[in-house]
Simulated scan of single mutants.
Amino acid sequence: MVEHESHDSVRRSYDTVAEKYAAGFRDELTRKPLDRALLARLIEQTEAGAPIADLGCGPGHVAAWLAGHGASVVGIDLSAAMVAVGRREHPAVEFREGDLLALPAADGEFGSAVAFYSIIHLAPSELRHAFEEARRVLRPSGLLLVAFHIGAQVRHMDEWFGHEVDVDFRFFETSHVVGVLEDAGFAVEIRMERAHHPHEVDTRRAYLLARRT
């Protein structure tokens, strides 16, 4: 696995909060009908028998939802502690430790992929590389479902779930991410935005469903 030094603080931060993060987000999808609908569409449009990758899966709650609805799922995350929690709590899912810029997967291994709020820890200059990696591991015409916070700011956190961390949360303009996806070899088929739910951090969110060309 290729190490990316710039992501080391992100990895350490998620290692530190893994248990509390998992407890806080375990049932998150029960309160997110749009997310569930998009994930269901992803399953429906994935090539029969092909696995789905959850890129930046954290403790695996999205991967577990996909697996619970009939998909074969591989969760990939930078944080070893998150991967350990996922393996413990969701035995139906395969988990791998790895970076979005060097995915531990073979060319064309997956029928589709989801990346919910994982690109928010990438520098803008890294987005295309990450999407090219996602394209590499997808089969022809495979789908990539991406969600992120909309904007141009960077929110830094040095305390999270009562622990000391060092992590940036980057917001992206939707049109910019669409352009990077297209440059990386995807065609965007669905573009949606929504306001935050009452239980969420106050940000607008974007969802893009893109197909590997």
Rank of each mutant, 00 (worst) to 15 (best):
H197S: 14
V83T: 10
R11I: 03
K20V: 09
E47L: 03
R136A: 08
A67H: 00
G49N: 07
D107C: 05
W160I: 04
F186A: 01
D77P: 10
H199D: 15
R87G: 15
I190E: 15
I120T: 12
M1E: 13
E126A: 00
G179I: 04
V2W: 03
G151N: 05
E132I: 05
L144N: 02
D168I: 08
R136S: 10
F171H: 12
L34R: 13
L39H: 07
L144Q: 03
A48D: 05
Q153I: 07
S9N: 13
A147I: 03
V201D: 09
R136G: 08
A22S: 13
V165D: 07
D107Y: 05
E19A: 14
L100W: 00
A40G: 09
A63I: 04
F186K: 01
L122P: 00
P33Y: 08
V2N: 12
A84K: 06
P59T: 08
E132W: 07
A187C: 13
V180L: 06
H149I: 08
L145H: 04
V137W: 02
G49H: 05
E159S: 15
S79P: 08
F172D: 01
E173W: 05
F186Y: 14
Q153F: 07
R212L: 04
R155H: 13
A195D: 15
M157V: 10
S9D: 12
R128D: 02
E3P: 12
S112E: 02
E89G: 12
M192Y: 13
C57A: 09
L78A: 09
I52G: 00
H176Q: 14
D54G: 07
A53I: 00
R136I: 02
F171K: 04
S72Q: 06
L144E: 01
V10T: 15
A84G: 15
H69T: 06
A152R: 11
A67Q: 01
D166T: 07
H196K: 12
R205V: 14
L78H: 03
A50I: 01
S79Y: 02
R194L: 13
V137C: 11
A22I: 06
A81K: 02
A106S: 14
L208K: 03
W160N: 07
R204K: 11
H69G: 05
L34A: 10
I150V: 15
S112R: 02
P91D: 09
